Amino acid sequence: MRPYASSGLSRGKPFVTVLVVVTLTFFVLHAFSGDIAASLSGNTATAAQIEVKRHQLGLDKPLVSQYGEWLSHAVRGDLGTSWTTSDSVSDALSARLPVTLVLAVGATLVSGVLGIAVGTWAAVRRGALDPILQTFVVAGYAFPGFWLALVLSSVFAVDLGWFPATGYVPFTESPGDWFSSVFLPITALVLGATAAIAQQARNATVQVLQADYVRTLRSRGLTTRRLLVVNVLRNAAPTSLTTMSLWFIGLLSGTIVVENVFALPGLGSLANTATTSRDIPMVMGVMLIMVLLVVAVNLVLDLAQAWVNPKVRIS
Score class of each variant (00 low, 15 high):
residue 2 R to P: 05
residue 2 R to M: 10
residue 4 Y to E: 05
residue 7 S to H: 15
residue 9 L to E: 03
residue 10 S to Y: 00
residue 11 R to W: 13
residue 12 G to Y: 14
residue 15 F to R: 05
residue 17 T to G: 13
residue 28 V to P: 01
residue 30 H to D: 11
residue 34 G to M: 08
residue 35 D to Q: 10
residue 37 A to H: 15
residue 39 S to P: 01
residue 42 G to A: 08
residue 42 G to F: 11
residue 45 A to K: 04
residue 45 A to F: 12
residue 46 T to K: 09
residue 47 A to K: 15
residue 47 A to Y: 15
residue 53 K to P: 09
residue 58 G to Q: 05
residue 62 P to G: 03
residue 75 V to P: 09
residue 75 V to L: 12
residue 84 T to Q: 14
residue 88 S to G: 06
residue 89 V to C: 03
residue 101 L to T: 13
residue 109 L to Y: 10
residue 110 V to C: 10
residue 119 G to R: 11
residue 119 G to C: 07
residue 122 A to R: 01
residue 123 A to D: 13
residue 128 A to K: 15
residue 130 D to Q: 14
residue 136 F to M: 05
residue 138 V to T: 15
residue 144 P to I: 04
residue 149 A to D: 10
residue 150 L to A: 15
residue 153 S to D: 07
residue 155 V to R: 10
residue 158 V to M: 12
residue 163 F to T: 02
residue 164 P to K: 02
residue 167 G to R: 08
residue 171 F to T: 00
residue 173 E to L: 06
residue 185 P to H: 09
residue 186 I to E: 06
residue 186 I to M: 09
residue 189 L to I: 02
residue 196 A to N: 09
residue 206 V to S: 05
residue 213 Y to E: 12
residue 215 R to S: 13
residue 217 L to I: 12
residue 217 L to A: 14
residue 222 L to T: 09
residue 228 L to F: 01
residue 232 V to T: 03
residue 233 L to V: 01
residue 234 R to L: 03
residue 236 A to T: 01
residue 239 T to F: 13
residue 240 S to F: 10
residue 242 T to G: 05
residue 248 F to K: 00
residue 251 L to T: 04
residue 258 V to M: 13
residue 259 E to K: 01
residue 272 N to D: 00
residue 274 A to K: 04
residue 275 T to W: 00
residue 278 R to M: 00
residue 282 M to T: 06
residue 283 V to M: 09
residue 291 V to L: 09
residue 291 V to K: 02
residue 294 V to E: 06
residue 297 V to T: 14
residue 300 V to S: 02
residue 301 L to D: 07
residue 303 L to Y: 07
residue 307 W to A: 05
residue 311 K to A: 09
residue 315 S to R: 12
residue 315 S to G: 08
